[in-house]
Nucleic acid binder design. Structure first.
Length: 875
RNA sequence: GGGAGUUUAGCUCAGCUGGUUCAGAGCAUCUGCCUUACAAGCAGAGGGUCACUGGUUCGAACCCAGUAACUCCCA
């Protein structure tokens, strides 16, 4: 058979992905699982934004999920990975608005229905591209189960949950100071606000006192809100102002009288120690206003312009008004001074606009009670976080959880099922008819009722995701929800631990009385090699599809995983993908070698390769168990590294060299069969990480039935531990080989020139079973017994045994310096051991085994020094 | 301002409850090789005062305190 010398990923990957799809290997089936008594395994995808395109973060996240689900499948579980997308109300609406703008259409000119029609069209056309891209990565999602958070049944669940929580008294409507985005004209949750450092002008403004001469000076960065001032507040202990408390002063620009009040909240040292209280435009001021029963004057409109209530600068943009107000104050001589200060300003994550604290009527979900089981079950370990450090973050947030503002002033999303009548009364109901019935019950008017204009926060649908993808709300006792829920692993970014993870846990306990998943694996943020976050604006994010195109999905998956320690950010560099590509090439060539063997099927098999086979068998078992343990701890990159070394170093560099027949010779049948088996096991071990090349080789190693694919093969679990003492023994043999090679290198001897080895007969005896291997790998042509050092040999120290390598005369000079160095080192070591042993406290406190070990070390070192000293004298 | 985390080789990271010569891995680097699967390779080698200062201990990369730098979350 002719096999191309270079591996061609593009062709192979497309072929196998199509084949897997055609065979339905990605499907999870509850009925089958139950019938066959299989353990369920389920991951729900963190639904990407429906309008999104694949970026490096998705690559990492989804590679990890695919590794997990493929492993589960090979462990014989009924595995399913449920895909889907999120309607992402703010992001999607912003994109649709922008798209309409390009076409010359203004959202304001459209009715809600017209706008939604455009939005749906847009979603149908561009939505879900990201899922197609995931296929290129090899994602083994059960595509038939693809869900969308705004599809009818999921929206229905959202509305029902809203109504349910409202009836239980968990949802309320209230005036709140919210983060207002004047550009998007919507409220934002705290988490959608990004704080940015800023330099601002700090205006010291004089407020004239009433019934007294003079002024009280107030420092502010927001003179445009002066029209909304309702009081001046000072600290009751501030000596400067004590006599002014209870008096009045005049708000400039609008000449309104306001009281001077006192509150502990005021910091005496900040600014002038006097604060202008503007309840409508500052959270803290609002709190003071509430406490002191002050009115609120809202001087801003929803688009950030000055409102009628301000009486001056009406209609002017807030930033222009700031300048105008400052100018006017200046001209009236009311500005004492202007300083520059550094402060933080909140900006909208989506639109970038400076966020305005604003009073508005919003819907809230009470979180404290609902959050209790969610906190408890993370703290007690029922739900595990990997890495564990995120438990702290979670705890802190949950213990201080605030009510969740769930309304958004948008159209794209689930419309809040609340209905208002002319009187301003409202009821919560699924349909207009039900609403009318409810109004009737209340004896409230029900003509011309209208539905709330707002939609629900996107997270109010995604928090139901693990339940809703199995139709757990429509059909709470359905087969799928009963079988697959709770799910096992959730893989997501730490950034959304509160937005999403915490809330899913809450919903899980509220609606299923059960955890939604047992483990949460938090990936890091993908950064470039300089540590910068990957972003479009920096242009430092490679297009994942280009990378796949260039090096193959297997190489990209390798590259993502090899540098991704759990929970730490990953510094991505193309060189990791290159390493992955090199690895595929290495495997491919090992495959070519093995397939190139001619097999001696008739000859009598010897025992010469038994040692090599036994050695690799033990190595394989040891590594499989190690990898298993690493996966259990969610240490993906370490698991990968173990497999990498097993294949490259142990299998290719050692094992294949051990059993490789001489040029032109056939390989013994027994050896060949075992080698194929080993290769198959290695491919199974690697398959979750590099699915394509492993499938390709799986089919190349043996003729298989159409359904016999590695993806659905069962990986044998090891029933015993590796023979450690055998592995230790083999390490001695391999150490000897390495030392011979090292001497060749340093003496400039060709690997082709055979050399002879001598050793004491018991040393020869110890490694007798490895004789064939040592001779082959180190190119030794004789193994001879010698009780003392033969002439022209170089001693090699293998643990406590000394071996002698016979060298050509030109290379026999002994490196006394190196020997002396070794002796000095051992002496130093010996001293430290002796010191320990002569230390009474050590002998008294340390464990007996430890002391025994130290004694053994001492004896070994003494023996080594003796032989080395002997050599130096003889030489 | 509050909270959490990080700091180990040129780079990215392991190092479990202090005790094996414990200072490790991969990549990169250097040396020698076109050895009949693979130069995307083979055989070797050299790299570190474990951020700093002090403490606890018979013994510290690991525990404690302080300092510095960086990162993230919340105000």
């Amino acid at each position: 058979m002719e096999i191309s010398s270079k591996y061609n990923p593009t062709e192979v990957e497309q072929k196998w992905y199509d084949y897997w799809l055609e065979k339905g290997f990605f499907k999870g089936d509850a009925s089958r699982g139950i019938a066959e008594g299989k353990e369920p395994y389920c991951i729900v995808i963190p639904p990407p934004n429906v309008t999104g395109v694949l970026h490096m973060g998705h690559m990492l996240n989804n590679t990890i999920q695919d590794v997990m689900v493929r492993r589960a499948r090979m462990q014989g579980k009924e595995a399913v990975w449920v895909p889907g997308t999120d309607h992402a109300s703010i992001a999607t609406e912003a994109k649709v608005v922008a798209m309409l703008k390009e076409q010359g259409i203004d959202k304001k000119d459209l009715s809600r229905e017209q706008f939604l029609k455009y939005a749906w069209e847009w979603k149908e056309k561009y939505g879900g591209i990201i899922l197609q891209q995931l296929k290129k990565l090899g994602a083994s999602c059960d595509w038939d189960r693809t869900r969308f958070t705004m599809e009818p049944s999921l929206s229905d669940a959202v509305i029902n949950v809203f109504i349910d929580l409202y009836r239980k008294g968990n949802i309320y409507r209230g005036i709140r100071m919210v983060n207002w985005d004047p550009l998007g004209k919507t409220a934002l949750s705290d988490d959608e606000v990004i704080q940015k450092e800023n330099t601002a002008k700090f205006y010291y403004v004089k407020y004239k006192l009433v019934d007294a001469d003079g002024y009280i000076t107030v420092a502010t960065v927001r003179p445009e809100t002066i029209m909304g001032d309702v009081a001046i507040c000072v600290n009751p202990n501030d000596e400067r102002y004590k006599n002014l408390i209870g008096k009045k002063c005049i708000v400039p620009l609008v000449n309104r009288e306001v009281p001077i009040i006192a509150d502990d909240y005021i910091e005496i040292d900040f600014g002038t120690g006097a604060l202008k209280v503007t309840p409508a435009h500052d959270k803290n001021d609002y709190a003071i206003g509430q406490k002191h029963g002050l009115e609120t004057i809202d001087v801003l409109n929803e688009d950030g312009t000055i409102s009628e209530a301000a009486k001056v600068f009406v209609g002017m943009d807030r930033f222009k008004a700031r300048k105008a107000a400052a100018d006017q104050l200046e001209s009236e001589g009311l500005i004492e001074k202007i300083e520059e200060i550094k402060n933080n300003i909140g900006t909208s994550e989506r639109t970038g606009a400076v966020v305005e604290p604003r009073l508005s009527m919003q819907w809230f979900l009470k979180m404290e009670e609902l959050g209790k089981p969610a906190l408890e079950n993370v703290l007690n370990g029922n739900i595990k976080f990997h890495p564990e450090k995120f438990v702290n973050t979670y705890k802190h947030w949950m213990e201080n959880v605030k009510d969740w503002c769930i309304s958004r002033q948008l159209w794209w999303g689930q419309r809040i099922p609340a209905w208002y009548n002319e009187k301003g009364d409202f009821v919560v109901a699924k349909t207009e008819a039900e609403a009318i019935a409810l109004f009737k019950e209340k004896n409230s008017p029900f003509n011309n009722i209208h539905q709330d204009n707002d939609v629900l926060d996107t997270w109010f649908s995604s928090w139901l995701w693990p339940i809703s993808v199995f139709d757990g709300f429509e059909n709470p006792d359905g087969k799928d929800i009963n079988y697959f829920y709770p799910t096992q692993d959730l893989v997501t970014a730490p950034e959304i631990i509160f937005f999403w993870v915490a809330r899913m846990i809450i919903a899980g306990y509220e609606y299923r009385k059960e955890l939604p998943f047992s483990n949460v694996y938090f990936t890091g943020i993908v950064r470039d090699k300089q540590g910068r976050k990957m972003s479009k604006s920096l242009g430092n994010s490679p297009d994942p599809l280009d990378l796949i195109e260039k090096s193959g999905a297997d190489a990209v998956r390798f590259g993502m995983l090899v540098c991704s320690p759990a929970g730490n950010d990953i510094l991505f560099d193309d060189k990791y993908i290159e390493q992955g590509r090199n690895f595929t090439n290495k495997i491919w060539n090992a495959f070519r070698l093995v397939k190139g063997f001619s097999i001696n099927e008739n000859g009598n098999d010897s025992n010469q390769n038994d040692t090599a086979i036994k050695w690799f068998q033990e190595k394989l078992i040891a590594t499989k168990l190690e990898v298993e343990g690493l996966y259990k701890q969610y240490k993906m990159s370490e698991a990968l590294m173990s497999i990498y070394k097993l294949i490259w170093d142990d299998f290719c560099a050692m094992y294949l060299e051990m059993i490789k027949p001489a040029f032109g010779e056939p390989i013994e049948n027994k050896t060949y069969q075992r080698t194929i088996e080993f290769f198959e096991e290695l491919m199974q071990l690697l398959h979750p990480i590099m699915p394509f090349i492993t499938e390709e080789i799986w089919h190349g190693l043996n003729n298989r039935d159409a359904n016999n694919c590695i993806i659905v093969s069962n990986q044998k679990t090891e029933s015993r531990k590796a023979d450690e003492s055998y592995l230790q023994l083999s390490d001695l043999a391999l150490d000897l080989v390495a030392q011979v090679r090292n001497v060749r290198n340093s003496k400039g001897l060709s690997p082709k020139e055979p050399l002879k080895l001598f050793a004491a007969s018991e040393s020869l005896q110890t490694l007798s079973s490895f004789e064939f291997i040592i001779k082959k790998l180190a190119n030794i042509d004789a193994f001879e017994s010698a009780s003392t050092q033969p002439a022209n040999t170089m001693p090699l120290q293998v643990k406590t045994a000394t071996w002698y390598l016979l060298l050509p005369e030109t290379a026999t000079s002994i490196d006394k310096e190196a020997l002396q160095k070794e002796i000095d080192y051992l002496n130093g070591f010996l001293k430290s051991v002796e010191l320990k042993l002569s230390n009474e406290k050590f002998v008294a406190n340390a464990k007996p085994e430890l002391i025994e070990k130290e004694r053994q070390k001492k004896a070994d070192a003494e023996a080594k020094i003796a032989t080395l000293l002997g050599q130096i004298q003889e030489g």
